[in-house]
Each structure stands twice: as C-alpha cells, then as structure tokens.
C-alpha cells in the first residue's frame, strides 16, 4: 500500500533535464496530486452524501429550507422516543437485521464448506451459488411473495399434500408482524453472498494447512476451530457487517414483504416524509438520521474487519 519509488532520484533529475514531461510530473507536489486525484469522488460524497446527511440532521431539528426560520430543538427526537410506532419499528428493524445476518452468515459458511468438500460437482455448485447474487432485491422480494404468501406456491404444495385446506390455514409468512418474509428474502440473497466470499478465502491454500493439522492428529472439530475458523473469520465478519447495514437501511424489501405497521425504519421514514403535513418532516428526518447513524457504525466496523481480511494471509496463519 505504500508508494513505490518510481525511479532513482538521480535518474529522475538527469531525465528531467531532457524531457519536459518529467519536470511536469515532478512539479505537482505529492500532496496536491493526491488531493486532485481524490477531488472528484470526494466532491460527490461531501456535497451529495454529506450535504444530505447535514440537511437531514438540520431538518430533524426543525430547520426548513426556503421557509421562514423557526426555533430549533430536539422535539422530533423526543417525539420519536415517545412514539410507540417508532419503538415497534426499531424493534422490528433490529430483529430482521440480526436474524437475517446471523442466518446468512451460518448458511453462507455452511454452503461454502459444503461446496468445497464436493468432488466433480464442485465447479457446478460454485457457479450455482452465484445465481442469486446479481438478482435485484426487488426481484427476490417478489419471488418470496409468490413462494411464501398464504396463497403462494408453498401453501399450494401444502394443500396438495393435505396439510392445509384453505389459504387462511397456511401460516402468514408475508405481510406478517414478525417479518419472516423479509428475513427469508434477505437470507436467500445474502447467504450466497457470504458463501462466495468465504469460498474464495477457503480456496487460497487452507487445505494444505488442514492436511498438516490432520497429520498432527487434529480431529474434524479441532481442524475447523483452529485452522478454518481463524482464516474465514474476517471474511465472515466483513460480509456480515455489509449484510447488517443493508438490511437496516433498505426500503424495497420491507415495503413489499412487510406491513405498513409495524414497518422498518426506512419505510416509516418515507411514510412520514410523504405526509402532506409539513410537521411530519422533522420526525421523518430524525428517523433517517437514526438509520444513517446505525449504518455508519456498520461502515466503521467493516473498515476494521476489511483490514484484517487483507492482512490475514494463509502463510501468516501457518507461521
């Protein structure tokens, strides 16, 4: 990650005497060059993302752009705290995010270990694992509606098998209060995501280490606990953080598969935002800020884990 010395300084000086482009390159100081390189992307992030966040915060405190000034205050946050709908929403959002993330992590690791252990069919299953990855979440959500709804495919199969006799007798898995449909949709998309990343880590020389451990007398559990787990842990952690952040902040899936009440935080924020009464703006923004802070913390956690993911090389573990 460090800057590589381009050429010997003496060579550079000698060259710059003849070639104007050398002098040109040398004349832009290093710090300025880095700043110029970063400028376009950071402008987008600071103006649109940072600006959006600052505006959400200001408007949650009562500021109204292009309207006469009002006294600012924490009323919206106090109202949120007291609002049972918002409390239910926080509970639902966290429940969905935690369960979906945990299930995706466990199933993803399981799938990766399974695919790795396969013989000839390994390539086919590794490819199969990637099928749901590029599907947009909205398509996954619709697939879950058609599969899990009370008149959906599973319910029909259950009827054909004689388990239930009417749609109403089938458990409500979509538009339900618990969020099963939402969780199922996320897990279907994100478990393969965890699986693909873990499989890539596993195929980078872990097998040799396991053979060595086996030769030294380690059992299956010991090999998993002391060889495989430390190698895949950063990858599992990093992908889990991404999944968690997405499930907290996403709108489409809970909108399609959930109820209007209780709804997840982004859905409630958008509901309030669409309210023609401008007084609903501040609470909407406050919910948006809370959501953004939650996922921002996830980004910090991901950075820490991603560093370890890059840092861990199988060779280092072996040493």
């Amino acid at each position: 990650m460090t800057e590589r010395p381009c050429a010997d300084n003496a060579v550079r000086t000698a060259l710059s005497a003849h070639d104007p482009s050398w002098r040109g390159a040398a004349r832009v100081p290093r710090g300025l060059r880095i700043a110029l390189l970063l400028a376009p992307a950071l402008t987008v992030v600071v103006v649109l993302f940072g600006g959006g966040l600052a505006q959400a915060l200001a408007q949650s405190l009562g500021y109204q752009p292009f309207l006469p000034a009002r006294p600012l205050g924490l009323d919206a946050y106090r109202a949120l705290w007291a609002d049972p709908a918002v409390r239910a929403s926080v509970g639902l959002t966290l429940r969905i995010a935690v369960l979906a993330t945990a299930a995706a992590a466990v199933l993803g690791v399981g799938a990766a270990l399974l695919v790795r252990s396969l013989g000839r069919s390994r390539t086919a299953f590794a490819a199969l694992l990637q099928v749901t990855l590029p599907l947009p979440h909205i398509v996954a959500a619709l697939a879950m509606v058609l599969l899990l709804a009370q008149s959906g495919a599973l319910s029909r199969v259950a009827t054909a098998a004689g388990f239930v006799d009417a749609p109403a007798a089938f458990p409500a898995l979509t538009q339900d209060g618990f969020g099963w449909g939402i969780i199922a949709s996320y897990v279907w998309k994100e478990a393969p995501f965890v699986g693909v990343v873990v499989l890539a880590v596993l195929s980078s020389g872990v097998a040799e280490l396991e053979d060595a451990a086996r030769a030294l007398g380690a059992g299956a559990w010991q090999r998993f606990r002391h060889v495989v787990a430390p190698v895949i842990a950063p990858a599992v952690g990093a992908t889990s953080v991404l999944v968690f952040a997405f499930t907290v902040g996403s709108y489409e899936v809970p909108f399609l598969l959930g109820r209007p009440f209780p709804a997840t935080l982004p859905v409630v924020a958008y509901q309030r935002f669409r309210d023609p009464d401008l007084a609903a703006r501040a609470p909407a923004m406050a919910i948006a800020v809370v959501t953004a802070v939650l996922v921002g913390l996830c980004a910090l956690a991901y950075l820490a884990l991603a560093d370890r993911l890059r840092g861990v090389r199988v060779g280092e573990v072996a040493r």
Binding site: Q55, L242, A245, G249, Y251, A269, A284, A292, V295, A299
Partner: peptide, 12 residues
C-alpha cells in the same frame, strides 16, 4: 457505497 442512501436523500 454500502449504505442504502434513502436516509440521506430525504434531506436533499
């Protein structure tokens, strides 16, 4: 890059 951006877009 990782955060669904609805939360920040409401404000702008």
């Amino acid at each position: 890059a990782i955060v669904p951006t609805l939360a920040v877009t409401l404000g702008i």
